[in-house]
Design a binder for these strands. Structure first.
Lengths: 194, 194
DNA sequence: GTCTATAGTAAGATAGAC
DNA sequence: GTCTATCTTACTATAGAC
């Protein structure tokens, strides 16, 4: 990798961390340059359109990929085993990964149409793969179950990670996962719901 | 109501709308003053500590109250009827209400400890009431079912409202509600889960 | 209470030397 | 490629007149 590429990558990496921790608007170009150890002028050499171009780069190169969690678990032998594996993997990826995931949600309105479409595409891809994995277990219910699980994971992360409910409510992801697994198991989704 | 109070309220109202649409950092005091039709100096007369005090005021006076949705539905005759009423009421409150709800999530880290505690308290109150309403129907499962529903609503709102998945996925809240209702019904939560 | 005028600061961005 | 130096603009906030 050339020096140019690695320096450029370092800038994107620093921007990604600062954006996801403080937000795009609250992060200054100065701050990013300092974090990397270069001046602002050097940064503008790599990104002619400045801060806005950096936002695009971060989105394009540092979007969290939930498909990894899926591919790790997709060969699980049972619905129970899959849910256990997948939910644990997604919710157990640590603070930084979570921050980036929810940063995209909070910053979504600032993206241009192409960038918004990119985000949508990522969700749809995740959904389609998830649906494909669930279908052998729950048939036609795979569609609704997929969106239910995705929404549930998102909401739990929002409330318990981002908004710190962890600190006042003793509800580890473990318990939520266990509850959902039993709910799904008991409902007998192998046959279609009305 | 005195002129002072109504002017003050108008400023808080304008700030609330702008904050929830653009974010706290991206909104300037100038912009708020213009929206109300006063100068910045006048605004600083009402809020000595400026923008930061405005954030506190917005949070204290314009926090969305989900308990209203609960009280409307709490006398429903069956679990089905309650879920139908509650989820529709929460998810059907319109764009502005939704925006304020998720704005709190995105801005949470900027709040001071007392303000964060206030937000937590609101969630806990909602949870306790929801649990109380569900308990007659599902017994000890009320605790987990409450957090599951709250997380699910949050996640759905985040994805389909805030991130505009509505536009690319045909999954109206109606269908998600229907699916969850049948899931819960089929699981037979009247008796405890493991 | 609300205004005009302005101080003081920090932001995004660029020119030109090396 | 990276630097120093600087420009322009926008922001938060305040002083003092009315």
């Amino acid at each position: 990798m050339s020096e140019r590429a690695s320096r450029r990558d370092a800038i994107v990496e620093a921007a990604s961390q600062l954006f996801s921790r403080q937000g795009y608007v609250a992060t200054s170009v100065r701050q990013i340059a300092e974090a990397v150890g270069v001046t602002e002028a050097a940064l503008y050499y790599h990104f002619k359109d400045g801060k806005r171009e950096l936002l695009s780069a971060v989105l394009a190169e540092h979007m969290p990929n939930l498909l990894e969690s899926l591919s790790v678990c997709e060969n699980a032998p049972s619905l129970d085993a899959f849910l256990d594996c997948f939910l644990h993997h997604v919710l157990g990826r640590g603070q930084q990964h979570m921050e980036r995931l929810w940063w995209i949600a909070t910053e979504f309105r600032r993206f241009n149409p192409q960038e918004q479409a990119l985000v949508h595409e990522k969700y749809l891809t995740l959904f389609h793969h998830l649906e494909g994995v669930l279908r052998p277990f729950v048939g036609e219910n795979a569609l609704m179950l997929s969106w239910t699980l995705i929404s549930l994971m998102f909401g739990y992360g929002q409330l318990f990670w981002l908004q710190g409910l962890q600190e006042v409510v003793d509800l580890p992801a473990e318990r939520l996962i266990g509850f959902v697994m039993q709910l799904v198991g008991r409902a007998g989704l192998a046959t279609d719901l009305g």
